[in-house]
């Protein structure tokens, strides 16, 4: 990091020197230019930090990257990181191309990065790379094409995962959901930042309630049943701002319905991923929830 900063500072100082020489000024800016370069970089970093601080998407990207570093098992670390890099690369390229086609300005594609990271972190990295590429492409396309009142209908990552698991037989393993401590700490922070803490709490609480009651009624192992909690889903997918309700009451209803559907799907059709399926179904109801609540 320090090397990059110094390289940048030197590059900036050299640029300032060139400009000064071009202006026929007899000023040689060896030390002065360097100081200016450093202060310029400092300003840039400060600006970036301010932008990041005010943008939950930036925090989301950082949190997901940190979780990604903890997620792969030691023996598969390179494989896991390569898988995620391909996922993010494909998402960013497709999103940028679509933005250019729509004649939108070019910004840092934070949404596409988040989508790429989530799809890559949920799809198992032991399978063919083509499944990942197609899943990411579908996710980004859904974000641009399946729109209702200027908002995408489905959570893009979730939609890509749904299509890939049903039609491409992609394996959804939630492999990045294993390191629980970083997920909970970072996810808690993200939920707080996005003002979706109530939603996460209601979802997890009801999830526990449904599985606890079913364990008692069916005489299954109580604690094991309670442990079927998907923190990754709750903290990083459920909180997506554009596909969750606007009001607090709406969000509570959203959390309740999602927990209910996850439990129902896992009980009736466990061969399909209950979380992915539940979120896709609930996404369809969001316009109605927003209208009624």
């Amino acid at each position: 990091m320090q090397c990059v900063l110094w390289a940048g500072a030197w590059a900036y100082a050299w640029k300032v020197d060139c400009q000064i020489i071009q202006n026929n000024t007899t000023f040689h800016a060896d030390s002065c230019g360097l100081a200016r370069g450093l202060s310029q970089i400092n300003l840039c970093l400060e600006d970036m930090f301010n932008k990041l601080r005010n943008n939950p998407k930036g925090w989301m990207v950082i949190s997901l990257v940190l979780v990604a570093l903890f997620a792969p098992p030691r023996e598969d670390f390179i494989e896991g990181i390569f898988w995620l890099s391909v996922s993010v690369f494909v998402a960013v390229v497709i999103d940028t191309l679509l933005s250019l086609l729509k004649r939108r300005g070019l910004n840092f594609p934070s949404s596409a990065t988040i989508t790429g990271l989530i799809v890559g972190m949920v799809l198992d990295y032991h399978q063919s790379l083509w499944i990942l590429v197609i899943a990411v492409a579908i996710a980004i396309l859904s974000k641009h094409l399946l729109i209702w009142k200027r908002k995408h209908i489905f959570n893009p990552a979730n939609f890509g995962l749904l299509v890939s698991s049903i039609f491409l037989r992609g394996i959804i393993s939630w492999w990045a959901g294993v390191p629980m401590i970083p997920i909970v700490i970072l996810g808690f922070f993200i939920a707080l930042k996005m003002r979706r803490l109530s939603l996460v709490a209601v979802f997890l609480g009801l999830h526990l309630f449904f599985f606890g009651v079913s364990a008692l009624l069916l005489h299954h192992q109580f604690v094991s049943q309670l442990a079927i909690l998907n923190f990754y889903f709750a903290f990083f997918m459920l909180v997506e701002p554009k596909t969750s309700p606007i009001t607090t009451r709406g969000r509570l209803i959203y959390g309740i319905l999602t927990a209910l559907l996850v439990f129902t799907f896992l009980s009736i059709i466990p061969q399909y991923d209950s979380h992915i399926l539940a979120l896709a179904c609930i996404n369809l109801l969001i316009p109605l929830v927003n209208k009624l609540v």
Binding site: V184, F188, L197, A201, L204, G205, L208, L226, L229
Partner: peptide, 24 residues
């Protein structure tokens, strides 16, 4: 206050999940 309440709820759910990971 509400945030504190929700935080406590979440961390108690997490506690249950962690207990099971210990069992693992």
């Amino acid at each position: 206050m509400r945030n504190i309440l929700f935080s406590l709820m979440i961390f108690s759910w997490v506690g249950i999940g962690c207990a099971q990971m210990e069992d693992m």
